[in-house]
Design a protein around this nucleic acid. Structure first.
Lengths: 98, 98, 98, 98
DNA sequence: CCCGGCGTTAATGCAC
DNA sequence: GTGCATTAACGCCGGG
């Protein structure tokens, strides 16, 4: 049992009250971690919803979400690596056809 | 060409300056969409980093990230399986075992 | 309770032994379904592994998996829709820049 | 150019015919890889269809596909959570609740 | 019949 | 470099 090992010795070796305090602290720590993560994940979820809404808006304005995604992807990557990729794809394609 | 069709008629039917204004508005709209999405995705990325940091903290406190993830997943799907679903799942499970 | 409704009437209306037979048949049916799906999913999993192995082989032969994936994706789609996509992407890109 | 580097030296350093043979072998290798992957992906697609058919059958027999999926998921992750994990999850869960 | 949501699946990036 | 975890893309399914 590797995890939560911090208070194993407390439980076995110290006075009951100290062991109990250590357990309580461990529990608090765990709760804090879990709750903070859950909170942040909820915020992420909300942002994802916002993004979805924007795509819906874009769609009803006549823009194709798929193309917008491609555009954003393109903007996110270095022009150099884009060219590199295109070049390699071309090399492989020609090799296939030969 | 289905997308960006909004100003096709402008281009063909109206005076040049109106068509140009329409184009400009379309471009602004597109820019707005792209920039808002990029902004939100950046925020999402930051939140993801925060979450990662918490897991790192958890780990160095002796908690196994893997188990914490399982715990959070479990907590997330309990509210999702409200009543009906849980009941039905139970019914099916028993039927399988019988 | 909409699902597994087939034997509700049996249970309530017929003799016990018929109801029991009906239940048994329902259970068999469910088991059959579950087992067949699990079997097929296992086969899918094996195929996915085979694919992964091929990519590993490709990689150690000096081919970049990423490029091979792009190549296969390209081959899977109609040339017409590829061009369409490229054209639209170009239109949007120009609109952004204008 | 890291990929397809295997025959760079052949092309530059050897007689034309050997270089050409090497190129041909590289092309064959690539074709083989691409075709095998495409074949396996096709098989996967067929299996996915079979699965879909079974769910359709289940549905018309009065079973809810959604519940069956949940059941199968449950069965799949029980072997995965062998001993240790289940135990740890329990420990953490109790600590949270305390 | 079309639209939106859900679930699944491939793909990227990260941690070990 | 390998495997895992997360995330984006795709397709199906149910509702309006």
């Amino acid at each position: 049992m590797e995890a939560m090992q911090a208070d194993i010795e407390d439980i076995t070796g110290r006075s009951a009250s100290n062991a109990m305090k250590a357990e309580a602290r461990t529990a608090d720590r765990l709760r804090s971690i879990v709750e903070r993560v859950e909170r942040l994940e909820e915020e992420k979820r909300l942002l994802a919803n916002d993004i979805k809404d924007i795509y819906a808006e874009a769609k009803s304005a006549g823009f194709l979400p798929k193309v917008i995604r491609a555009l954003i992807r393109e903007r996110a990557q270095e022009p150099a690596e884009m060219e590199e990729m295109a070049t390699l794809l071309d090399v492989y394609r020609r090799a296939m056809d030969s």
